[in-house]
Write a protein that binds this DNA or RNA. Structure first.
Lengths: 233, 233
DNA sequence: ATAACACGGATAATCGATTATTTGTCGAAT
DNA sequence: ATTCGACAAATAATCGATTATCCGTGTTAT
């Protein structure tokens, strides 16, 4: 039955593939599936109540962002990160983010300063762990963490560099889900505080150094032993 | 009629969506379509002799790589780059590539040295322009140019950083197609030669500086006037 | 006993057709 | 003459079904 023309653009409606994409992305990032698990279009289509075409589109997008693997004629799967891959991602972040942070600190305006303050404040008062979630970071903390690191860089004013950050962050978080158990000795809170202080003081040298160290320590904590951290430092 | 099972994996066969994807990517990168032109799935499907599903999959992949724009319920289009966007891409390259080049020079082995030599040699003896192609760079030169710049960075040994290069290079070349007329005063040949020399001499400081200048000059040449180049330098 | 081959189930890839949305146009009311 | 709204073409999004491919299993020949 065709209903009469909409008086105004129907508000809540968006593409099904978009919804399925977001759902799968969140599920994968949340770690709902084990690495290597098959993502079967038919099963997903049935449980989401949509056709294969929309699931397929969502999966293809996921592959493009590194959130799914594809083997031709073999289907899609949750990506499995090797330790080597994880280290490469961490190194890439160490290489690029301090440079962008410098640019950000040199260029950021007062609005950026305010956003940095707000992001750090939010991060500092969000608990990283909630008892019932076991060893995993709470999703609220993960999001606050991402926003803080991104905000630090946003002063650079270059969307292309921020896109690069987004891609690496996604890969980094995905790998962290599975490479990881937390290192209780880490003082990430203090590192974040020092980052904020250096950024707001416009001390690019210190900020870049602290960020590089922060990323190194994080990477070392996630590869199990803290031996590597001491070596690098 | 179903034919009997293959004695061995049929050799030339690959996914249709892959072929269509490659075809569209090449066409867009070659500049066959004007920026902003609609990419109509139906037309493409008909001229390629495939169904809508495979065209759609190819287009979704293209969007993921920034080689097509998508407006929900409005279809796909060849991306139109603003001058601002082009400058952002160029700045991102200036920011990241010199840093990666340093790492590459510090780490590259003798095999890398040989590949740099070969890539530069190939670039130097490939003509940048062929008369019948008007003002556009020849596709052979474009490819040799890409390989040279990529090879310079490959010594870093980090696939994640190289993926980042690939994405930025693609965006850069796409923008160049349309932002661009060449600046006859440019001595890109000399810049490339100095890059090779500094890299092989393991002079990371000089190489990074030459690369930054090279990217600045290229960007300035493509935004029309060479005024900006002089300012930045 | 082993290795190569053929069958069959499961699932990926593709297709043809249906449904939904947008946009331009035409006409009526002001 | 201008604006608002309904109609109609174009085309994007989705669906259900078909075809092709892979892989495990069982069979047969050596």
């Amino acid at each position: 039955m065709t209903r009469t023309a909409h008086p105004l653009t129907s508000p809540g409606k968006q593409m099904l593939s978009e919804q399925v994409y977001a759902h799968l992305r969140d599920a994968i990032m949340r770690g709902d599936h084990a690495p290597g698990d098959a993502l079967k279009p038919q099963d997903i289509a049935k449980e989401q109540g949509v056709s294969l075409a929309v699931v397929r589109e969502a999966l293809v997008r996921l592959v493009g962002e590194g959130l799914a693997d594809r083997l031709p004629n073999r289907g899609f799967a949750v990506p499995a990160f090797s330790d080597r891959r994880w280290q490469e991602i961490a190194e890439a972040r160490r290489t690029i983010e301090p440079v962008v942070l410098r640019m950000s600190i040199e260029r950021g305006d007062v609005d950026w300063e305010a956003r940095v303050r707000a992001a750090h404040h939010r991060l500092a008062r969000t608990p990283a762990f909630v008892p019932e979630d076991g060893e995993y970071y709470s999703s609220a903390w993960s999001e606050a963490h991402r926003v803080f690191h991104r905000t630090l860089l946003e002063g650079c004013g270059n969307p292309v560099l921020l896109e690069t950050f987004d891609r690496m962050w996604t890969a980094s978080e995905l790998a962290r889900r599975w490479a990881a158990q937390r290192d209780p000795d880490r003082d990430a809170v203090g590192e974040h505080r020092r980052l904020e202080e250096a950024a707001l003081a416009r001390d690019a040298d210190t900020a870049a150094e602290v960020l590089a160290r922060h990323l190194t320590l994080t990477a070392a904590a996630l590869t199990g032993s803290s031996r590597q951290a001491k070596e690098v430092l």
